[in-house]
Design a protein around this nucleic acid. Structure first.
Lengths: 220, 220
DNA sequence: TACTAATGTTACAAAACTGTAAGGTTATAT
DNA sequence: ATATAACCTTACAGTTTTGTAACATTAGTA
């Protein structure tokens, strides 16, 4: 979504984006901007700081109370104050006019890449080698093969994924699994690790989880 | 982690960061940079493009094959080519020397904020009003109260959370839950929604999930 | 107002999940 | 080389989860 009043720039941007396969929409009613944005719920907003009727930074500030839609701020003044304000109000990136079209496209791509995890309908995914772990569904995918994880296996695997190449202690995993709320046999963890390993083995990742005796486990 | 060869700048940066409560480390051995970085596994890297022995962009490119550690590129040349390259190779942000310390701090803050979800040990959390949903553990928290969700409830609730204020069709939810792989009685969804609602009711969110007859459900 | 399709509720049985126990295997230190 | 603590495997039973069916309720439309 383009939020910009200078018609020339609007059209330029529109062409640029449409030519690069972005479905583009131009916001017209600045007075009702916030509602329009929330209604349309675009994947990304190019927001000019200087638009009529409303201050771009204030708009961003209000938007951030309700949504995390990625915003790239556009401004004609190359002032550091603007830049500082935009970033602290929650802009995802910042670009000054006149902009280089290629840089803009790259920045858009970068912002979308960074933020897409929170917006793609399939939920978040983490990857490990050729595996994709959808940790909202608890499914590991490799090519077309899918394996389902139980809740415990999900907790362990996403913890390991979030700490790749780091040793994760058994303590850490136990706290994550059972919160210390009730004592659980320390072997319960071993069993759950074993079950997870068996599932990983099914798709050829026999040695994904490595034991570091006396220290913990590592996914590497 | 600072990856920079000019000692003066290094010290400046170190002081700036330490003064602002960032635990800072300076990379010394550029020849072994990649391994050092992976070993230390810092929360964020300030990476100068022009360091001895190795090209910063190549380093970034290699790092990205193994890790998503946030990287802010630092360069003395304000060339758009560098900028374009850094972004496409996976830099999270970019700043040119001489930099304004406050802007740098803001950018660091912004990058950490953007990326922290993937790194914090407690896993991702989404919020809905006063509720926090840890969707790696499948727990909804309100103050000190916690309720556990089953896998199906987790899938439904995180889908709704990711589409707040939007109507979610029953179709969408069913596809998300069962992937169309096998036919499931369409009432199974109704039952699962009902179960989720009961749990939400326990913590005073009786009307969180609203039915839009003929359309779907909405979390609003 | 009455009809109807859409959505809700409850109880139940099959299936899946999970901690435990008992015994087996490994790596490390001495 | 051997002892030992750390870790692994398997089978099992209690518990939880889940889809189904049967019936209840609701909102919208005629």
């Amino acid at each position: 979504m383009i939020v910009e009043d200078e018609e020339l720039i609007c059209n330029e941007l529109f062409k640029l984006l449409e030519n690069n396969n972005y479905e583009t929409i131009i916001l017209k009613d600045f007075k009702n901007a916030l509602n329009e944005i929330l209604e349309v719920s675009p994947d990304l907003i190019l927001l000019d700081i200087n638009i009529p009727f409303i201050n771009g930074e204030v708009l961003l500030q209000n938007l951030r109370k309700k949504s995390d839609i990625p915003v790239i701020m556009v401004t004609s003044i190359n002032s550091e104050t603007d830049e500082a304000l935009s970033i602290s109000y929650g802009a995802d990136d910042y670009i000054t006019k006149p902009y280089n079209p290629n840089i803009l496209l790259l920045r858009i791509g970068a912002v979308l890449k960074r933020t897409k995890t929170n917006y793609n309908t399939n939920g978040n995914e983490l990857t490990y080698k050729e595996l994709k772990f959808d940790f909202q569904k608890g499914i590991i995918k490799k090519d077309d093969i899918e394996i389902e994880l139980t809740k415990n296996e999900m907790i362990i695997f996403s913890y390991l994924l979030n700490h790749q190449n780091k040793i994760v202690t058994r303590e850490e995993l136990m706290t994550t699994l059972w919160d210390n709320s009730e004592y659980v046999n320390d072997n319960a963890l071993t069993v759950n690790i074993s079950r997870l390993r068996n599932k990983l083995k099914e798709i050829g990742y026999e040695n994904a989880i490595d034991t570091r005796k006396g220290l913990g486990y590592i996914l590497s």
